[in-house]
């Protein structure tokens, strides 16, 4: 960065800039398909969408638990369902040799998908 642009900085500016570039918990991969990896590229895309929906469902379910609108029995069933969904996703990731960070697509100016 042009040093003229730095108006105020606490600490070592280089260190701050490095921290800025350091990836957080979110991945910054792009979906990358080409003729040689069309199958795995497609699997990555599909599993990314499945993971997104799974996480949305999970979050909504937890909101409902926190909201107190579910019975004990419903909560128990919900916990079991969410756990099984996550286990199934783990299996699928292994089958297609994908890591957690592979299931997050960078959408450029919109940020990361998850």
């Amino acid at each position: 960065m042009d040093s003229n642009k730095i108006l105020l900085s606490t600490g070592d500016t280089d260190e701050l800039l490095r921290d800025m570039e350091k990836p957080g918990s979110k991945a910054v991969n792009r979906f990358n398909a080409n003729p040689d990896n069309a199958e795995s590229g497609l699997a990555q895309l599909v599993l990314t969408l499945v993971e997104l929906i799974r996480k949305l469902v999970e979050k909504q379910a937890i909101r409902r638990v926190e909201g107190g609108s579910l019975s004990e029995e419903e909560i128990e069933r919900l916990g079991e369902t969410l756990m099984k969904l996550e286990l199934k996703m783990e299996e699928l990731k292994k089958v297609f040799n994908l890591k957690d960070e592979d299931l997050n697509i960078n959408l450029g100016p919109l940020g990361d998908l998850m």
């Binding site: 960065m1 642009k5 730095i6 108006l7 105020l8 606490t10 600490g11 701050l16 800025m20």
Partner: peptide
């Protein structure tokens, strides 16, 4: 906290 103010852009 550490602050980094930059600009104008």
């Amino acid at each position: 906290f550490r602050f980094l103010l930059t600009g104008p852009w």
